[in-house]
Design a protein around this nucleic acid. Structure first.
Length: 522
RNA sequence: GGCCCCAUCGUCUAAUGGUCAGGACGCUGCCCUUUCAAGGCGGAAAUACGAGUUCGAUUCUCGUUGGGGCCA
């Protein structure tokens, strides 16, 4: 069959791509990006995705990792049409193809020891040559090899590499050429039961009808080997697209030592799947326009290999934070509240009680039941401040405390004295007291308080327009800290009763300081 | 060591022979403002280097340097 026929066959075949993670660790962003680009391309072409767990390394592969990867893909919405297939269960298939190569003398048994091989490699490298196998087993008669195997000698299977130029087209980089004579006869199986990576990939890609191999740049040097095996087996050559790798801040391939790279870890910290997808898609791809916020359907619509970057991209977590905050702002408060609940629970601000009618949330400090609307309000007011969901609990803890603890000094705005601060709180107490519980809404509170500021300020001899003399003590009285959402927002969340209680507590604190201010204050 | 890939602000990138080299994150100034955010308006910040091709190179070619990947 000619090259042209092979090409044509692939052109007309419906697109089928593979997602081939190795379950040798928890799902990381590299796996995410690989799966994402495959998914996007398949969806754009109306094709299918096949999930294949490459777990032939039984030492390092664990079910725990495989489950983590499956969970991660589902959470991200990167669904697959077929699989998951496990390479560890496909030994018989590999064996069949392996036998074929041996029968046709395209692969052979090698009995060289590790020491011999190592010595050979050192020698070649010292002479500036490519470290390739040049041992004697290539010429071993099949009968002799079989006899040695029968005798129990340890062996590997080597592929008989043709000494020719191997060219292939890459959808991202164009034509790439390798010299087969520099590759040497590489190992394709450790024994009959354990076929190696380059071999299993070729067999599986063919068996699964893969038309497009979309993977990381780190596989470019594997490609000629795989093509050679394909040719020896008489299989079709898929299209190749090698994506730039994702790097850490030190510009080396992103890995565990660069810190948090696990998808589950990001999920736990409160990153949204759409943020992670948007961010990862733009690591090595962009639409060529100034649009940077991209949903999955838009990615599927606009993706093209022509716009894929060739150089590797540094994973910049600060930018991920930014995108995440954008997507947090995009969600409805109800949606966000649901996602935030676990963070309140794990911070100890909420307790969860499952019952037949659903989950009930309570404040473990007071025992009172917490309604959805309460959380929703908090979340709505915090929405513009969150970079990730995990920040919600720490930023809102004061709503769940029955008593606040803070220095009374904090209640004072600028040059205000304790006495003036107390006057401010007294004033607020009166204003709030006149608002009916039914009218206790942020806007009403604001409308009741703001017009009074000028009068109050003038009465204590402060600049008319400085809202802080009245509002700062309110803020601190309600949350006990410097940074928070707006005081009217807090009052809204807390409700009339608790707001009054907190103001009273602040006034109480101040009372102690006002009796003899000049004597004891510095 | 051999082979392969790559190279625009700190980072992600746009500009495929003619642009004041554009955008975003981050940084920063101002505005808004009761704090912190958010938001609005500005600013600093890049074509690795050297040859060539060309009237003209970020863009094409070659070399150098640098980075990365694969091979055990």
């Amino acid at each position: 069959m000619s090259e042209n026929n092979k090409e044509n066959q692939n052109m007309t075949a419906p697109v089928r791509v593979r997602m081939p993670p190795s379950p040798t660790g928890f799902m990381h962003v590299g796996t995410l990006r690989m799966a994402l680009f495959n998914y996007i391309f398949a969806k754009q072409k109306g094709g299918k995705t096949v999930l294949r767990l490459e777990d032939t390394d039984c030492q390092r592969s664990k079910k725990e990792f495989a489950d983590d990867i499956l969970d991660g893909l589902k959470w991200l919405g990167l669904s697959w049409d077929e699989g998951p297939f496990y390479q560890s269960q496909r030994g018989e298939i590999y064996k069949r193809y392996l036998q074929k190569l041996i029968d046709e003398n395209k692969a052979y048994y090698c009995f060289c020891s590790q020491e011999e091989l190592e010595a050979q490699k050192q020698y070649q490298m010292s002479r500036g040559e490519a470290p390739i196998y040049s041992g004697g087993c290539a010429g071993l008669a099949p009968e002799e090899a079989c006899a040695r195997i029968a005798r129990g000698d340890k062996f590997v299977v080597r592929f008989r590499t043709e000494r020719k130029k191997i060219k292939f087209n890459d959808l991202v980089r164009g034509e790439i050429e390798f010299d087969g004579s520099l590759i040497g006869d590489f190992v394709i199986a450790k024994d009959f039961e354990n076929a190696l990576y380059n071999f299993t990939v070729v067999v599986d890609d063919f068996e699964m009808g893969i038309t497009h191999v979309i993977r990381g740049e780190d596989h470019i040097s594997n490609t000629p080997k795989q093509i050679l095996i394909q040719e020896a087996l008489g299989l079709f050559r898929p299209e190749y697209a090698h994506l730039p790798i994702i790097m850490g801040a030190d510009r080396s391939k992103l890995s565990k030592r660069h810190g948090a790279v696990g998808v589950t870890e990001y999920r736990r910290q409160g990153y949204l799947p759409e943020a992670l997808i948007n961010f990862t898609a733009f690591l090595g791809w962009n639409p060529g326009t100034e649009k940077e916020i991209y949903s999955m359907p838009e990615l599927i619509r606009d993706f093209s290999f022509a716009k894929v970057q060739k150089g590797g991209a540094v994973f910049n977590p600060v930018r991920l934070d930014y995108l995440n905050s954008c997507y947090i702002k995009n969600r409805t408060p109800g949606d966000l509240a649901r996602l935030c609940l676990p963070y309140f629970v794990s911070a100890g601000y909420l307790s969860e009680e499952k019952s037949a009618s659903g989950t009930v949330y309570k404040n473990p400090r007071t025992g009172e039941r917490i309604e959805d609307e309460f959380i929703e309000k908090i979340v709505a007011y915090q929405q513009s401040r969150l970079k990730k969901l995990s920040e919600i609990a720490e930023a809102s803890g004061y709503f769940f405390l029955s008593e606040l603890s803070y220095e009374k000094e904090l209640l004072k705005w600028k040059d205000a004295s304790f006495a003036e601060t107390k006057l401010a709180l007294d004033k607020l107490k009166i204003i709030f007291g006149n608002i009916k519980a039914g009218d206790w809404k942020r806007q009403n509170l604001e409308e009741a308080v703001l017009p009074q500021i000028a009068d109050f300020n003038l009465s204590v001899g402060k600049p008319e327009k400085d809202r802080g003399y009245l509002l700062w003590p309110l803020r601190v009285a309600l949350c006990g800290q410097k940074m928070s959402i707006g005081p009217f927002e807090m009052a809204d969340v807390l409700g009339k009763e608790k707001t009054a209680k907190r103001i009273d507590a602040a006034i109480e604190m101040l009372n102690g300081s006002i009796c003899a201010p000049t004597l004891f204050n510095q």
